[in-house]
């Protein structure tokens, strides 16, 4: 208990007695983690946005002739059973005609005198998230072509090609930039902590001379590293939230005035907790490595 009190007291006093070194470490951890957190925030929101776009990926299956109700239900059930299909709806000729009329708006008089039978009945297929790609859509269409009653298919092939290329580019950028950012963060934080410990190597030497065991010397430094890591991570989240609020939420909303800007969300709780955990781990590991070198009895 006495030791625990000493370690807590020492950790806090060390930070108070070396304010410049402590603020430099906390500041570096804060800025490095803020960049990482903000990057994660952007990646997550772009992922959200693309997930919304991907809902637009639908396959329309046109029917040669209007089937009987029993047949219709059978086909609908068969399509629904397919693992790539999330949802299927049937659009009758009358519904298609009515939809078309609505789309024409003020020009709907063009349809006067025409019968709903001019338009084919169809199934509208919404794909599962995993199948929302050109390949997924083509695979499903090949399966559906086995039914001769399905006369035509439309799924925006050109749009899908561009969507696939965009998603690939996004993932590649995410992995490359994220990997580089994580590496840079680790490098900057570990070197800053190493420098702060190097600046206090005299203290470490004196402690060993007066008979402190290696663990007794290391514990306050490790605790200090962990505390600085946590404080840095909290500052990073605060800074990231400020960037999110002023730059993304307010700035982008005013600029875009689209519903997409309204859907921008902050980091979920699990990611926020991960940032704090990362700060904690980086603080401890960043301190442990140079301590191994400098605390030599």
């Amino acid at each position: 208990m006495k030791r625990l009190r000493y370690f807590i007291q020492r950790t806090i006093l060390n930070m108070i007695q070396s304010p410049l070194l402590s603020s430099a470490t906390i500041g570096t951890i804060g800025v490095a983690l803020m960049l990482l957190a903000f990057f994660t925030l952007i990646v997550l929101n772009v992922q959200n946005l693309t997930r919304q776009w991907s809902r637009e990926i639908q396959i329309t299956v046109y029917l040669e002739q209007v089937p009987s109700t029993a047949k219709l239900q059978q086909w609908q059930e068969q399509i629904k059973q397919h693992p790539s299909v999330e949802h299927v709806t049937y659009t009758s000729q009358a519904e298609a005609f009515e939809l078309f009329r609505k789309r024409l708006g003020r020009n709907d008089d063009l349809l006067d005198g025409l019968l709903p039978e001019i338009l084919p009945a169809s199934f509208e297929l919404v794909l599962t998230p995993e199948s929302r790609s050109e390949l997924g859509a083509e695979k499903l269409v090949q399966e559906l072509k086995k039914n001769a009653a399905f006369s035509g298919f439309r799924y925006g092939q050109d749009w899908l090609k561009r969507y696939d290329a965009f998603i690939f580019l996004l993932k590649l950028t995410g992995v490359l930039a994220g990997g580089f950012l994580i590496f840079a963060t680790l490098f900057i934080i570990s070197n800053t902590i190493k420098l702060t410990i190097y600046a206090r190597r005299d203290e470490l030497e004196i402690m060993t001379l007066i008979g402190a065991t290696p663990m007794f010397i290391k514990i306050p430094f490790l605790a200090e590293g962990a505390l600085q890591g946590i404080i840095g991570a909290l500052l990073a989240l605060g800074g990231c939230h400020a960037l999110y609020y002023f730059f993304l939420k307010r700035g982008l909303s005013a600029l875009l005035t689209t519903t997409a800007a309204g859907n921008i969300t902050f980091l979920p709780f699990s990611i926020q907790a991960s940032v704090i955990l990362l700060g904690f781990v980086l603080g401890i590991c960043g301190s442990a490595l140079p301590l191994r070198k400098f605390v030599r009895v």
Partner: peptide, 9 residues
């Protein structure tokens, strides 16, 4: 290392 620490005391 630990015994050295105790010796130095």
């Amino acid at each position: 290392a630990r015994k050295i620490a105790f010796l130095r005391r």
